[in-house]
Amino acid sequence: MRCNGLAISGGSDSRFFFPTNSSTIYTASARNPSSTVLFPGRPVFSTRIRATPRASAAAAVVGDRVAELSFYELLGIPESGSLGEIKQAYKQLARKYHPDVSPPGRVEEYTRTFIRVQEAYETLSDPRLRAIYDRDMAKGLHLAFSARRRYQSDEGMEEKSEWKSHWQSQLSELKRRSVNKDSRGNMSWGARMRRRMEDL
């Protein structure tokens, strides 16, 4: 489930976050190692450091921990779960974690959890996205999965063009990264990661 022995930061909206407790080492997603930003200052993004032990389902977890759960674990359903089960689990978790029902003072935390629950629901309730998610999960990449970022604008994308755009975006990303690398004095990805570790 883990990749390169490092916890991969959560999906779609993860680039704006705070370091939580130091036991979690944040790297960027494997596909985009340059993209993690950590910046302080905003209560919206603040995360309480909690000693909550990791539980098997979201029922007992709020805040950042939910990012480590698979969408199935988060919704508390088996991987064979039906659409009805997904919908029911989503509504139950919404009742629990929607910021409107959060206790005062824990709104940000609940908001983060709810957004993640929402993402899980949106992915698993769409047969096509669920298939891709299942495929990625089999490869251990599910933690980096983001339904929305992948399909930001092209809902009805066909399989063929999907592959093409995957390649194209990967190519353009590689190209951009190599330009960036030059601007960073030819520092390798490994070197950057090492530095990052040291900084922690």
Binding site: S34, L38, H98, D100, V107, T111, S183, R184, D199
Partner: peptide, 28 residues
């Protein structure tokens, strides 16, 4: 080449906040 990140946040009471900045590679 530069990576400029724009993030939009709408909370449950529909308040919109926009965040933006330059992403510096390889540093926090």
């Amino acid at each position: 080449a530069p990576e400029i990140s724009v993030c939009m946040d709408v909370d449950a009471s529909n308040v919109l906040r926009v965040f933006a900045g330059v992403v510096q590679l390889g540093s926090y």
